[in-house]
Design a protein around this nucleic acid. Sequence first.
DNA 1: GGGTATAGTTTGTGACACAAACTTAGAAGG
DNA 2: CCTTCTAAGTTTGTGTCACAAACTATACCC
Lengths: 103, 103
Amino acid sequence: MPVDELDPLIHAVARLRIMVVLSALTPGDEISFPRLGEVTDLTAGNLLTHLRRLAEAGYVTVEKSGQGSMSRTLVAATDEGRRALEHYRATLGRLLATPEPSP
Amino acid sequence: MPVDELDPLIHAVARLRIMVVLSALTPGDEISFPRLGEVTDLTAGNLLTHLRRLAEAGYVTVEKSGQGSMSRTLVAATDEGRRALEHYRATLGRLLATPEPSP
DNA sequence: GGGTATAGTTTGTGACACAAACTTAGAAGG
DNA sequence: CCTTCTAAGTTTGTGTCACAAACTATACCC
């Protein structure tokens, strides 16, 4: 009945947190992998996996440089990612507000 | 960091839909199992499982009468369920709104 | 150079959403 | 009455996924 479905990629709590944090960044800004892990309260393994899926969807960019302990990974939301989150927000707002008349 | 966690019982899309529909009912009102299945767009199997979990949590009541094709099952949200949804709504709103200052 | 710390990756497992198959019992109808 | 159909729930099997523990690679310190 509700034509608009909640984007399952964003709906997972962990990824939702990631997207919220990334979208809060000034466009053009980035955040480091470890810092993002702290802020979202995710272990590195989880963060990595979720970022991979978000990157595959084109919602985030992941830039890596260096190797081993010198590696620096920077993450940012893409415009598409921001739009997707906005759309999710709107859809969810609609869903939560809907009294859905029952005949 | 965000102390308030999203209630995972409600967060699943299917159960979220169920709770929204049930909460939209006038307190004291009930909805039939088949009708709830239609409105939430869930198969009977799914609906049953999700209702079971919601009932275990005390978020909904499930009243059964009759057997076989004569069985009538009525479902309603409990006060606790309504409160939980409200809390979920608030938590989510906070999460989605949080710009979360990054040092 | 052995130990410790940091950054990221791989892997194993348990939970869970989902739908297909099954059960039960009344109604249709011949 | 005996079969067939349909409606209402229930059980079960399967694929997906979130999660954390274990692992790899590299630098810093003594």
